[in-house]
Simulated scan of single mutants.
Amino acid sequence: MVASPGIRRIEGLIQSHPSQDGDGVHIQRIHRFDGELDPFLMLDELGSDRPDDYIGGFPPHPHRGIQTLTYIIHGGITHEDHLGHSSTIQAGDAQWMHTGRGIVHAEMPLTDSQGLHGFQLWLNLAAREKLSEARYRDVRSGEMPRLQSGKGELIALGGSWTTQAGESVAGPLDSLAGDGAVAHARLEAGGEMALVTSSETLAVYVFDGALQIAGENVAAGQLARLGEGDTLALSSREGAQCLILAGTPHGEPIVHYGPFVMNHMHEIDQALHDYRNGSFTD
C-alpha cells in the first residue's frame, strides 16, 4: 500500500512479556496502567498446547472498576460468578463482563485438539461508572459480523468498523468502555486491508505471523500503538492475525491494585475493605 498523509503510522511498539496469573496460568501480557492505551489497560494472551501451563485456571476472585473482554481462538473457558451466571465459550466466542461496583467470578480453561488459545482485555471504566451495577454477557461466533477485503477478513467483536471501500459492520458488543471497538483481523499471504478510523486510541496486537502497518513490520507478540490519521493500512507478506483495539481515552487518574482499578487510592482502600468485610457484592 502506498502511504499518504492520512495513513496512521506506528508511534511505538510494546513487546508482550511472560507472566503468570490465577493458579499458575502461563500468559503473555501487555499492561499499561499509565494511560498510554486508555481506555485499554491490559491484554493477556493465553496460548499453549501444554495443559500444565493453564489447567489450574482462575479460581474465584473479585474485580471492581473495569470491564473484561475474553475472546477464544481455540479451546474454551467456563465462567461462573456470584450473580448466578454460568456459561462456557469456545472457539470464536467471547464474553464481556462489566464489573462496576464488584463481581466475584471464576474462569476455568478447556482444551481442544490444539490446546488453548485466547485473550482477555481489561478496559477502564469512567469514574461515573466505577460503582455501577455489574453485568455479564456471552457473544457467540455466529453473532459477529465479518468484512472481506483483499485476501483479508475482519471479525467485529464490538464497535463499528469501515473499510476504505465503504463497507461497514458493527460488532454485537456495543457497550465497551470508552467507546471501545475490538476486532480480529486475518490476512492471507499477500493480503491487504485498509480501515477508516479516527479513534484517538488505536492499537494493533499481532499474535500470528508478521504484519506490516503502513509498511513497517510488526512481529507476533508485539503491540503497535498508532499515531494520528484516518486510515489504518494493514498488509502481510506471509499471512498474519491480529487484534485491533480502538477507543476514546477517559483522561482520568488511574490507580491499580491487583483486580481493582479506581481513580484514587482511597477508593482502592475502600474496595479492599468492602471485600474483606463481605459487603463487596451488596
Rank of each mutant, 00 (worst) to 15 (best):
E129K: 14
A194S: 14
A127K: 13
S149Y: 00
D23E: 14
N277A: 01
Q222F: 05
A185M: 14
E238K: 12
G92F: 04
I27S: 06
H98C: 06
M265L: 13
G239I: 00
H98V: 06
F260D: 04
A185P: 05
H31S: 14
E267L: 09
L223E: 07
R186I: 02
Q120T: 00
L243I: 14
E11R: 13
H31V: 08
G227L: 09
I55H: 15
T99F: 00
F207A: 10
T248H: 11
G56E: 10
F260C: 02
E11T: 05
I10M: 08
L232H: 02
H61T: 03
I244L: 15
A177N: 01
D81A: 07
D21P: 07
D38R: 03
K151N: 12
S16K: 04
L41T: 10
D208R: 12
P253Q: 09
H17D: 03
S19C: 00
H266V: 06
S87V: 07
S236T: 04
I55L: 15
G227K: 04
R9T: 12
H63T: 08
G84D: 11
E228W: 00
I254G: 03
G6I: 04
C242T: 10
E267D: 12
S279I: 11
S168N: 05
D174E: 13
V2T: 14
A224Y: 09
A181S: 15
E36L: 15
A181V: 10
F33T: 11
V104M: 10
P59R: 06
G56Q: 10
W161E: 13
V206P: 11
E188F: 10
T163G: 11
R135W: 04
S113H: 09
T163R: 08
G239Q: 10
G152S: 15
L202S: 15
P59N: 07
Q28P: 00
P39W: 05
G76Y: 05
D44V: 01
E129L: 12
L116G: 04
S141R: 13
Y257D: 02
N217S: 15
Q15Y: 01
V169P: 02
S19N: 12
R186V: 06
L69M: 12
M108R: 08
P259N: 03
E143D: 15
S113N: 05
Y205T: 10
A181F: 07
R128A: 15
R237W: 01
M97W: 00
S236K: 07
D274E: 15
F119D: 11
N277T: 14
S86D: 14
H85G: 03
S48A: 09
L173Y: 06
I103Q: 05
L211W: 04
G118L: 04
P18A: 12
L123I: 12
R64D: 09
A185N: 06
I14D: 06
I244N: 01
E188S: 15
E107G: 02
G166N: 03
L123C: 01
L83G: 13
R29F: 00
E80D: 09
D112P: 11
G158I: 04
V182C: 02
